[in-house]
Amino acid sequence: MRISKFLKLNLKGTFSPLKLAMIILFVLYGLSLVIGDLSKEIQGEIIKVYDGDTITLVENQEKVKIRLYGLDAPELNQRFGKEAREYLLSLCPLHAQAKIKIIDKDKYKRVVGIVYCNEINVNEKLVENGFAWAYREYSNDYVVLENKARKNTMGLWGEANPLKPSEFRRKQ
């Protein structure tokens, strides 16, 4: 039986108890798929730090590429890119355990999340210490920390005219 036919209201606008129960189960199942996946946490060993905002960890013998949520760090071939990577490595060294609070998946199918190493919110630390921009196009979560880092000329904010990574990528 087709779902659209199964879920159709009868002419009186009421559902049979069976139809109502099936609709409720169908909706709850759909919500559990969405909410369950995005509110999940994973944990694993860091095996690669690509740059200041992307890592790979192994969880249950499976490699998972993680894009740090809410920030954009300089590219490796951009001014301050190597420093951002080194700072991320200082917070999350190779072979360290990391916990990831999954926020989303990006268009490249990477997990987008908040990274915790040694109970430290790594995303916050990168922005707070001037190693990344708050990625305003996706979140306002770290704008206050970026403004504080700018005011105190922390990290890349000590440079004369730091170029946003998104602008740098566009020029490449």
Rank of each mutant, 00 (worst) to 15 (best):
T54G: 04
V64N: 12
V143Q: 03
A98R: 04
L11R: 11
K99N: 07
V122Y: 00
E41T: 15
V115Q: 00
E119T: 09
L18A: 10
R136I: 14
L57E: 08
T54R: 03
I3T: 10
I55D: 00
L33R: 14
I46W: 03
C117M: 04
L28K: 09
V122S: 00
K171Y: 05
K99V: 12
K99T: 13
I46F: 01
E75M: 08
I114P: 00
V115N: 00
Y138F: 13
V127D: 00
R67G: 04
P74F: 04
E75Y: 05
G155Y: 10
E167Q: 15
A84F: 06
E86I: 12
Q172S: 10
R136L: 12
K8L: 13
S90D: 10
Y108T: 09
E124L: 04
C117G: 03
E137A: 13
F168L: 08
R79E: 15
K164Q: 15
N77H: 10
N147I: 02
K19D: 11
I35Y: 13
G52E: 02
L91N: 03
V115K: 00
N129H: 11
A21D: 08
V34F: 07
R150A: 01
L89N: 09
S16E: 10
G158P: 09
F131D: 01
S39C: 10
S32D: 12
Y69G: 01
E83I: 14
L89I: 15
F26P: 09
K125M: 09
Y69Q: 08
A84M: 06
A21E: 10
D141A: 10
V34A: 05
E41Y: 08
L76A: 03
L68H: 02
D141N: 11
G36F: 12
D141C: 01
L7E: 07
E59D: 14
L20S: 14
V27Q: 02
E137P: 05
D37T: 15
K65A: 04
F168I: 09
I47R: 06
S90T: 10
I55M: 03
I42M: 12
G52M: 06
K5A: 12
D106Y: 02
N123D: 00
N123E: 00
K63F: 10
G155V: 13
F15C: 05
I114V: 15
G158N: 15
S32R: 11
A132G: 02
K19S: 14
L38I: 15
R136N: 06
D141K: 12
T153Y: 11
K107R: 14
E62N: 13
D72K: 06
